[in-house]
């Protein structure tokens, strides 16, 4: 029997992997994909709990998360293009203008 716990543990594993990716990768697009991975792991939790509780709300939430992810992808990628145009690079380690 597949329980809700199975899905949630899987989701936790995927989420942590996404975190590692965000923290270690230097290519901004890969970082962005890792964020998408984290979002998807959360979506899995939502849908698993929604189906377990017999309630549609979780799935509606996922629906909106997808919408926001799409918008984020559009804006984020546009930002990267703009940044690349200026700096000839999308290496996250070169994003260091916030320094003292």
């Amino acid at each position: 029997m597949i329980t809700i716990t199975h899905y949630m543990v899987l989701s936790a594993i995927l989420f942590s992997m996404g975190t590692v990716g965000v923290l270690t990768r230097r290519n901004a697009i890969v970082v962005f994909m890792c964020v998408e991975l984290m979002l998807n792991s959360v979506n899995l939790t939502f849908i698993a709990l929604s189906s377990h509780l017999g309630n549609m709300d979780g799935q509606i939430f996922v629906f909106f998360i997808m919408t926001v992810a799409a918008a984020e992808a559009a804006v984020g990628l546009a930002l990267m293009i703009a940044y690349f145009r200026n700096r000839e690079s999308i290496d996250v380690e070169e994003f260091s203008l916030l320094k003292w």
């Binding site: 989420f15 975190t19 270690t24 990768r25 230097r26 290519n27 990267m80």
Partner: peptide, 27 residues
């Protein structure tokens, strides 16, 4: 479009280790 090649993995090894530790802890 940006035509980026393969990247070099993070310069700072201790940062990578730290990231793994933090993520594992979180998991």
């Amino acid at each position: 479009l940006l035509n980026q090649g393969a990247e070099v993995i993070a310069r700072y090894r201790h940062a990578v280790i730290g990231a793994f530790v933090a993520a594992a802890l979180m998991m």
